[in-house]
Design a protein around this nucleic acid. Structure first.
Length: 227
DNA sequence: TGCCAGGCCGGGT
DNA sequence: ACCCGGCATGGC
């Protein structure tokens, strides 16, 4: 019997140490998309405040004055400047308001604001199309594909890179696509697995593998090589 | 208090 | 093809 691959071993350790993470922390696929853009280089607790603002806001441009902007139609009709104020707690609010608008414009122009239509594509063309939107890079695209469309695209982020590098499992100069391929070639292509694995890496990173704290003696992966 | 957080873009080499 | 500055708030 061949031993399990290192990435599978790590997954099992993380899962038994932390338990299931129940990602993505959102109620609807559309909310996942908005959150994915808002959380770029930003603490999730700040994103929650911004999401909450969007949930409880009323769009002045709407005639019905109903509560909440977290539907495609509502967000699409929201002015850029109103959006920027609402998402302020998430940081980079001018940039991110523009990115949300870019996505919404593209989404309505090409898919009439219909998520079913957008997600009714094969995984690679969905990813490519998302990447063509200004403000959606590889991590955001993969997050949308995995957590909103629920297709098996492994999400790489700063924690993934840092954890893998510190355990000497990857070279320092590896690219996003190479690291993504490393995971996808080592694991079964399974939405639930990719979902849980990325969430667990983020959990590990937040807990034990922050940028300034190179030494980690109590990491649950401690028996692996470690700098 | 300064540093960090679930990136990405655009301009300069 | 890289490299780097800019973008910004809230928490520890």
């Amino acid at each position: 019997m061949p031993a399990d691959k290192p990435l599978k071993v790590i997954y099992n350790k993380l899962l038994s140490h932390f338990g299931r993470q129940h990602w993505w922390p959102a109620r609807t696929p559309f909310e996942v998309i908005v959150g994915a853009i808002l959380t770029q280089n930003t603490n999730w607790s700040n994103v929650e405040k911004a999401i909450n603002n969007l949930k409880t806001a009323v769009n002045p441009a709407d005639r019905d004055k109903s509560i909440g902007l977290l539907t495609p139609e509502k967000l699409y009709r929201c002015k850029l400047s109103d959006l920027a104020v609402l998402i302020k707690p998430a940081g980079y609010f001018n940039i991110k308001a523009g990115r949300l608008k870019n996505f919404m414009d593209w989404f309505f122009e090409n898919y009439d604001g219909d998520l079913e239509r957008l997600f009714n594509k094969n995984i690679s063309s969905l990813r490519e199309e998302l990447l063509s939107v200004r403000g959606i890079g590889p991590e955001t695209a993969d997050s949308i594909v995995l957590y909103a469309a629920e297709k098996p695209s492994f999400v790489v982020d700063a924690y993934t890179y840092r954890i893998m590098f510190r355990h000497r499992l990857i070279p320092e100069e590896i690219t996003y696509d190479e690291l993504k391929a490393f995971f996808e070639e080592s694991l079964q292509s399974d939405v639930k697995l990719f979902n849980e694995y990325h969430a667990l890496l983020v959990r590990l990173g937040k807990t034990y593998c922050k940028k300034t704290k190179p030494q980690c003696t109590i990491c649950p992966l401690g028996d692996l090589p470690h700098d």
